[in-house]
């Protein structure tokens, strides 16, 4: 970390410029970040604490929370396995078409959430490519759990891999080659050499992936069908409450997601700090 040296007079801005920049920066942050956040909490507690609790303990809210947890618990591990496999294949080996594979892994980042969800409706929806086949076999994907999981996996697809790839590439291959030379099996090398080396990147990827999986709205909205108590995740439940003018309940449930966002930011900050301490130690 190269903080600018404190006494470098040439780098000091005129006091008026400094004051203006600080006012603009803080003004923007307060208006666009803090005011909306404050509104979430003020609106959530408008009816008192008991109303707040009632919104959270409502059976539909409970079902939404359980579904969100379930979807996250399926999607994140899948992305971890994929991320580790992709990073291992791409950084520890040489092959043709690496650039293309990397680009394809990144593709979901460039796709609008609505389009991401729509892809699975086009595949598995009633009028989709496999729609009639699935109907014959009596398998439900769209407007059911599998569709929600697929849409979530799609939008979170690059998160873990994108964090692992640079971390694994930065470590090179020497350590793995040394371990193998000393008689370790491939699996031992992976578990005892590679994995510990990239653990912060992996945690970071998992944190980002989890945050997105919990909060995904657009993609899940397309595939869920909004069946109350069945296919509503937390964000969709908030949308329904809001559209029914149950603002207090909507904001009450929203505070849960704000807390998830805060935990994400704190976890990210802590990981960065531990990582940089580990690097300088």
């Amino acid at each position: 970390m190269s903080a600018p040296a404190p006494r470098r007079p040439a780098l000091a801005d005129p006091i008026a410029a400094k004051a203006t920049l600080m006012v603009v920066a803080f003004g923007f942050l307060s208006l666009f970040l803090l005011v909306p956040l404050g509104i979430v909490f003020i609106s959530a507690f408008k009816g008192g604490f008991s109303t707040y609790l009632a919104a959270l303990t409502d059976p539909d809210a409970g079902a939404a929370i359980r579904l969100t947890l379930l979807v996250t618990l399926i999607a994140v591990p899948l992305n971890v396995v994929f991320g580790l496999a992709a990073a291992w294949a791409l950084t520890k080996h040489d092959f043709r078409g690496k650039g293309l594979l990397l680009a394809v892994i990144d593709l979901p980042f460039a796709v609008s959430p609505v389009i991401s969800g729509m892809l699975f409706v086009l595949l598995f929806g009633a009028a989709g490519l496999f729609g009639t086949a699935l109907a014959d076999a009596d398998i439900k994907i769209v407007f059911a759990l599998p569709g929600i999981v697929m849409a979530t996996v799609f939008v979170t697809f690059p998160y873990v891999a994108r964090e692992l790839l640079p971390a694994m590439a930065a470590k090179g291959r020497d350590q793995e080659l040394a371990a193998l030379t000393l008689g370790a099996t491939g699996m031992q090398t992976f578990r005892k050499v590679t994995l510990p080396n990239v653990r912060y990147a992996l945690f970071h990827g998992v944190v980002l992936c989890t945050a997105r999986a919990v909060g995904e709205f657009g993609a899940v909205s397309v595939v869920s069908g909004h069946i109350r108590g069945e296919t509503n995740t937390i964000p969709l439940h908030i949308e329904i409450l809001y559209n029914e003018y149950q603002f207090t309940s909507a904001f009450a449930v929203a505070t849960l997601l704000v807390l998830v966002a805060f935990v994400t930011l704190i976890a990210k900050k802590l990981l960065l700090r531990t990582e940089s301490q580990g690097a300088t130690a």
Binding site: L37, S43, E216, P235, L236, I238, F251, A254, L257, A261
Partner: peptide, 22 residues
């Protein structure tokens, strides 16, 4: 510095209703 990432961490639906209310 951490707050700058809030828009990425905050689920878009929450951002939507909060900004609308504001």
């Amino acid at each position: 510095d951490a707050l700058v990432d809030l828009p990425l961490a905050l689920p878009t639906a929450v951002a939507g209703i909060a900004l609308t209310a504001a």
